[in-house]
Amino acid sequence: MKTLTYYPSIPRFLAARALGRRYPTAALPLRLVKRPEPAPPAGWVRARVRLAGVCGSDLALLLGKNSPRLSPFFSFPAVLGHEILAEVEGQRVAVNPLLACAERGLAPCPACARGEEGLCENVAEGSLAPGMLGYNADLPGGWGGWIVARPQRLYPIPDGVPDERAVLAEPLAVALRGLDRAFGGRDRYRFPASTLIIGAGTIGLLTLALLRALGHDGRLDVVARHPRQAALARSLGASHVYPDTAAALTDLGARRYRPILGAPVYRGGYAAVVEAAGSASSLDQTAWAAAEGGRVLLLGAAGEVRHDFSPHWFSELDWIGSYTYDAAAFGRAVDLLGQLPGPEALVSPPFALENWRDALDAARARRFVKVVFRPRA
């Protein structure tokens, strides 16, 4: 089968880290290579990939933005792609890409024993190489024709949900897990009167759609840098959409102050802020956009950033980080796919693996919120 495989290269990593988005797509450490179709281990099944997404964390890896401190918990070379819609014997399934204790042939660690597989202590231990599907040297991710998984990691897609919406199950689970942690979870959500989402990529926009679907009826504002993102935010239920955080805070009525050095700071901001951009600038904006005693939710994966922590203690903020999901959140996210109004508008027309340069250029240029591949088995 054809696969898009990432081969790590320290010189290319350093070059991409230095040049950022100016680094040429053609020079990225990806190769279109043929591999044997994977054979499922005993008790596992093989699934044909229908669609696979390009995640911001994939771009961060390719462009040298992720933290080297996390390198022990992933393994390469690897077939990338952890946002996977697949098919098993005609049944469409969303794939939970976690490879925790059960997959690694180990007794449950404390996190897995309480159902928190996303916090598994053994992601670099056991019978498999470190990392989940898409970041694992032993098992292919979704940027290839086939994957293998335990049946418990496969979630049937509800009838009537189009493929372009179903492929969003994994990032939707990331958003749902974060909202559970920040606002009470399941059927007992306690949403604040005002919330700001900074970042209108896939995670930010799905968080917006989820908040409305779960009952947030207060002021729900979004910072969106690009016109397409802004239009999608309005269609998904944003109260107001702003080009930057300063405009949002000014409209809210927060008080602005000028320090002796650095950007303006604020008092009287939002009761809650969701940070879904993962950059140094967005993290700084988030810290000052939250009202005193407010709550901040850091969603998804950020790069390696430096940050001024003074507003954390100065405003006595509650900070909650949320990176992945557990099995329960993933299942609930799949069930919610049928209730969300049109998130498939985020998704690009599918790219063939052979056109990976065009696909990644489209992702880097933000011509679409979510770029997807359609591998051929």
Rank of each mutant, 00 (worst) to 15 (best):
E89L: 07
L98P: 00
E116D: 15
A129F: 05
L139Y: 06
R104E: 00
N122K: 14
C120M: 04
E89G: 09
L106Y: 04
M132F: 15
C112S: 01
P140I: 00
R153W: 07
P151A: 14
R92P: 04
E117L: 06
N122C: 13
C101G: 07
A102V: 13
G105E: 04
E89R: 15
G81A: 14
A102W: 09
M132R: 07
A113G: 14
G160W: 12
E103N: 05
N136P: 01
M132V: 08
A100L: 01
A129S: 00
Y135A: 12
V148D: 05
C112H: 01
S127Y: 15
L133W: 02
N122Y: 10
I147C: 09
G145H: 09
P97I: 02
G105R: 01
A94K: 09
L98K: 06
Q91V: 13
A113N: 14
A129T: 03
A124F: 13
P110T: 07
S127A: 15
G81S: 08
G81L: 04
V95F: 00
P151T: 05
E125P: 04
A113K: 13
S127K: 13
C120W: 00
I147W: 09
L85C: 07
G118K: 05
A113L: 15
C109I: 03
G145R: 15
L98M: 11
G142E: 05
E87G: 12
L128T: 08
N96H: 10
P108H: 15
G134I: 05
L98S: 02
Y135H: 15
G142W: 08
G160V: 04
G144R: 05
P151E: 06
E89I: 14
P97Y: 03
G90Q: 15
L106G: 03
D138L: 04
V148L: 08
S127V: 15
C112E: 02
A113R: 11
P130E: 01
C112Y: 06
P110K: 00
P110E: 01
Q91G: 00
L128V: 05
V95T: 06
G134A: 10
Y135D: 06
G81W: 02
E83Y: 12
R153E: 03
A107Y: 06
V93I: 04
G81P: 02
P108G: 13
L139W: 03
L139P: 11
E125W: 04
G131F: 05
P108F: 12
W143D: 08
E103Q: 03
R150Q: 13
D138G: 01
V93W: 01
E103W: 04
G118H: 08
S127M: 14
C109N: 02
G105A: 00
G160A: 05
G105I: 06
G105L: 08
E103T: 00
G142S: 10
P130N: 13
A129I: 09
G145I: 06
Y155S: 13
M132W: 03
L80T: 02
Q91D: 08
E83T: 11
R150L: 12
A86M: 09
R92A: 12
A102Q: 14
Y135G: 07
E121G: 14
